[in-house]
Design a protein around this nucleic acid. Structure first.
Lengths: 245, 245
DNA sequence: CGCAGGCTTGATTCTAGTCAACTTAGGTGG
DNA sequence: CCACCTAAGTTGACTAGAATCAAGCCTGCG
């Protein structure tokens, strides 16, 4: 990643239209631009620790981070996967509720806490965007609870791959292409396991089973090819939506 | 419940200082008061259905509701328990993402959607309160994911009872009293099971086990006495907080 | 008094977890 | 450049915990 980003204008920012600044008008954007600073962290950096003070709020510009909580006995559960345009930190609270760790090299667009909190109270478009993003995250967190509470190991893994493919597609262009999709996993098997509420062995076995069933191919552990996206998605006939029996 | 509530002033409202109106100033409160209408629903009423239009946003004034999603094959997962002061509906989206059902008789303070959305954009204290409540719910939903993903059946049930006791205590006065606590369960065993991502049998067995261990007593299926709250809470030494090894 | 629904309990099965060995890939230093 | 070393991933054997299947038991109500 490139520190010359530090002086780039918001106008060329890759997350300009998806992040907390998306709805900012010209004057609000100027205030954000004056307050922001880019910073890049290597993989493995703890960007926040549960219970510890967090004095910068930020948007992820590039890279991937994980949000998790660890029990005293070592059990760990991830509660979110943070991708470009996602927001880190909670205005109005000085500490982080979760551990946030860079899963790859991560570039953040950072704001000093006090400064950002002031912006939220005085810049209505930023406040509004913040609310919408938080509502979206709330829905995502609740959907996540459904996955963790009621899906089998296989469904969890499939759901993970399908969602990752969708998010990646959404970030780049439109939707998932016709049939075949290739994606790079930003997480190790262990982290995926902690995400899905499984063990590393079970996760690995599910990858193997999907491979055996011809639903995925894995040129390397971190790369997954999905020859028929629809077929894979069919494995989770979750949903209910309006279809009430 | 009492329909005479319908004409009561916000000043005497039991959730005046905890709901979305908590931070409203005098003029905002007048606007809310003009727009609101109380309505009471019997137990079992579907207050919203996943995917269906939801044209009233509301605060729960009294009673208890559940928020859930159901799979095509019948599996169900609750994603939240709605108690007085909690908010139903999402400004900016015309449909509900979940089923919301009255678990007891429920009284709502309702606002017509368009009206409320206008308030959110034009009344900064209401918008701010909305953001804070949404952020709180987001944390709660993420904590819930940790429970569903990594806790054992026993821990889930204990966690449920402990949280319910805490919420009840917080709603009434201060904190949980010295040792003994009595609480009334607003949910059937089946609903608790759907909440905890367990089956009804496993849930029942855990209640029995806790009873045998002397951690709870159950004068009736819906009433739980906790002789030593601290001892019960000790069963889940979850947490990590700042205590990093 | 009998009935129905919700709850509890028992027996058994099955999924995912645990423990352990082995394989592979990637990186380092001789 | 190759050999080794390490960490990550895979696979196997076995176990444990929760689900499933199936009776029975209260409790409140007609």
């Amino acid at each position: 990643m490139d520190l010359t980003l530090a002086k780039e204008s918001c106008l060329h920012c890759p997350i300009r239209h998806r992040a907390v600044c998306a709805e900012a008008d010209r004057s609000e954007l100027e205030r954000l631009e004056a307050a922001k600073s880019y910073r890049t962290f290597p993989r493995g950096t703890m960007l926040a620790e549960a219970g510890e003070p967090l004095d910068h709020l930020s948007s992820i510009v590039a890279g991937c981070a994980t949000m998790s909580r660890t029990f005293a006995d070592g059990r760990r559960q991830m509660v979110g996967l943070l991708l470009p345009s996602d927001f880190i930190g909670r205005p109005g609270r000085p500490t982080s509720a979760y551990n946030i760790e860079a899963a790859s090299e991560v570039t953040l667009c950072r704001f000093e806490r006090r400064m950002f909190e002031e912006l939220v109270t005085s810049a209505p478009n930023i406040a509004h965007r913040m609310l919408v993003m938080t509502l979206d995250e709330l829905d995502a967190a609740r959907d996540w609870a459904v996955v963790l509470g009621r899906m089998t190991a296989r469904e969890k893994v499939v759901n993970f791959l399908v969602n990752l493919a969708r998010r990646e597609a959404a970030a780049h262009d439109g939707s998932v292409s016709g049939g075949a999709v290739a994606l790079h996993l930003p997480l190790s098997r262990e982290t995926i396991a902690d995400y899905l509420g499984l063990t590393i062995e079970t996760t690995s076995r599910q990858f193997s089973a999907l491979r055996k069933d011809g639903l995925i191919a894995t040129p390397s552990a971190r790369d997954v090819q999905i020859p028929d996206f629809e077929a894979l998605a069919l494995e989770i006939d979750d949903d209910d939506g309006g279809v009430i029996s």
